[in-house]
């Protein structure tokens, strides 16, 4: 990891061992992904949240997850890795939570076969329409502002 060409605004942390860094990276990636995925789910099901608030506020967790992915990273290379890991972990959390009732409830296998493609279609279109935009928007905004700042 280290010893390569300089990767951006700040150098990779020098004092951490490889194992420590891998563990920290996985922890950060999963944490960011969980936040992003839960945020995506909440944004797309505001009828259950009972906030009565402006639904746009529910974008905050997704945008925030993208921002945290960059802020947690020690270098630009790290940031890209973390950003992508968080994005895909978040997508998995969102899709998983969306289709989980098909197995939590006792659907007959035939009903599941009919419902699964429909629900995957719903959740993937939501993922592309708002999750990708909000998460990546938050990430890129933070990267850009970080570059301006330094």
């Amino acid at each position: 990891m280290s010893g390569g060409t300089s990767s951006g605004w700040s150098s990779d942390a020098q004092d951490a061992t490889g194992l420590h860094r891998t563990a920290a990276f996985l922890l950060e990636g999963v944490a960011v992904g969980l936040l992003a995925g839960m945020g995506a789910f909440v944004y797309n099901t505001p009828q259950f949240v009972g906030l009565g608030a402006d639904a746009k506020l529910l974008l905050v967790p997704m945008v925030g997850a993208g921002a945290f992915a960059h802020l947690f990273a020690s270098s630009l290379r790290d940031s890209i890795r973390l950003g992508l890991t968080g994005f895909f972990v978040g997508l998995a959390v969102f899709v998983g939570a969306w289709i989980a009732p098909l197995w939590m409830l006792s659907y007959p296998p035939t009903a599941r076969d009919v419902l699964l493609p429909e629900m995957v279609g719903d959740v993937m279109s939501a993922a592309f329409l708002n999750y990708a935009g909000a998460y990546l928007g938050g990430y890129l905004l933070t990267v850009s502002l970080g570059a301006l700042w330094e």
Binding site: L35, F41, F68
Partner: peptide, 25 residues
């Protein structure tokens, strides 16, 4: 800051996920 956002989101997620299951049930 991350924890504050994550805890608030998790609380809303619990509402949303149980609602999602219940509405299908």
């Amino acid at each position: 800051a991350f924890l504050v956002v994550a805890v608030a989101t998790a609380a809303m997620f619990a509402q949303a996920a149980t609602g999602h299951v219940a509405s299908m049930h």
